[in-house]
Write a protein that binds this DNA or RNA. Structure first.
Lengths: 232, 232
DNA sequence: ATCGCTTATATTGTCGACAGTTTACCCATG
DNA sequence: CATGGGTAAACTGTCGACAATATAAGCGAT
């Protein structure tokens, strides 16, 4: 699998605090720690076999990344993503990924374009084989977006999108699973995007990326509306 | 004393970790802790009269906010802002403040506009009185920008710009003090921006805000180039 | 004198414990 | 039955200490 993420320093940073941070991120995104549930430091520390000191540092990081909400002297809680907050998040993501696509258009070479096409090809095969594997769809989607972001040449932007907000967006996707047909449409939007990037058309790439993100948001909001309808 | 001011969370969040975080932020932005200098946990803890536990939590937060750089088992260092990183940062700030201005245009009422005008009036008076007080210029500038951002209605965006990246941008401004005449020009750009906001013209407000941020970046880069020239 | 290796010091990462505060529980009272 | 007060349990915030690692110092060889 492609390693766009800077996970290669995972062995180097073998501190407990780092490990716990990753495990907790995963637990939150996977739903193992349900949204809104309380975080008990002592219990969690025991569960992961560490003391509270490294755990608390991990909690601080998770708080900064908005996966946890903490009030000074009460227990931390797993962030609850309301529709309003999801809209806010995607508004931000739309402009940031938009500018990333714009800048990537003038930085990508033929090899980069080929890489993207290959990614898309594999994405398509995955989609043909198993039409409902949301997990693998997610991975493929992230690979695609991350590669473009990385090609923007803006390391700060890449860190924000690929590290800091990565898990938050995964959390959105998980809590509000995709509507049927969304993956196919996303694939087609990815194809268009590649063409714009291949032509070095930054303006158009930005527009397409923004539309793509906005389209994903609409899909998610639609999914929420349906859930609410069913629930009532 | 009456607790009318928004400082009420200062008593509420009276944890040492929080206090140290604020004090360290200030120390870094003010240059008291110079860019690139080493952070020694024991020494700092002693200096602030706390143990290392709350200090380390503060360091984690400062790391997440990019004011510190940490490698796993070596001392943390105060972030060094290279010109390239400043450009990256302002690219992000440009699009984020741009979308904030766009959304603010459709959320601001007459009272909000009046508030902005009053802010600008005071800003102008400050500028007339003391032409070189960068500190107060900075405060005035932040007040203006922050108010527009708050009016965007996007709480997540406001938190990113007004909290998470606030000190980092202050740090840029401090390390690369403004070129003469910049304040006047910024003031004029603020005036234009208010007109667009008053007319509810989101498109134009976004364009003006983006130009304003880009103009600030050019000013800073110019200042750096001059410094380099002098140094060589 | 410089470089490499070994030893010593300094510093970070982690732990267990305690104090202060919050939360939960229980009982009395309307 | 709901409600309020008061006590007990639970939990967070903080501390000092120890172990593991990194950095600096010392020493010998080239």
């Amino acid at each position: 699998m492609l390693k766009v993420l800077a996970n290669d320093f995972e062995d180097a940073d073998a501190t407990a605090a780092h490990r716990i941070f990753e495990q907790l991120s995963e637990a939150i995104v996977s739903g193992d720690l349900a949204a809104g549930s309380k975080i008990q430091e002592a219990a969690l520390a025991a569960r992961f076999g560490v003391s509270r000191a490294p755990l608390r540092e991990a909690l601080r990081r998770l708080e900064e990344r908005k996966l946890l909400t903490r009030s000074p002297r009460s227990s931390a809680r797993v962030t609850v993503l309301t529709p309003a907050r999801i809209v806010e998040l995607f508004t931000i993501r739309e402009v940031l990924e938009g500018v990333a696509a714009r800048q990537a258009a003038s930085h990508m070479n033929a090899s980069d374009i080929n890489h993207l096409r290959a990614l898309l090809q594999r994405h398509e095969e995955v989609l043909d084989a198993i039409d409902d594997d949301i997990y693998r769809q997610g991975i493929a989607d992230e690979d695609f977006h991350f590669y473009i972001i990385k090609c923007s040449g803006n390391a700060t932007l890449a860190q924000i999108l690929c590290n800091e907000y990565y898990n938050l967006i995964r959390l959105v996707r998980r809590q509000h699973s995709r509507v049927p047909g969304r993956a196919r449409r996303a694939l087609s939007e990815h194809h268009q995007l590649i063409e714009a990037l291949a032509e070095g058309d930054g303006n158009f790439a930005e527009i397409l990326m923004r539309r793509h993100v906005a389209s994903a948001l609409r899909s998610i909001l639609g999914s929420i509306a349906t859930q609410v309808e069913i629930a009532s």
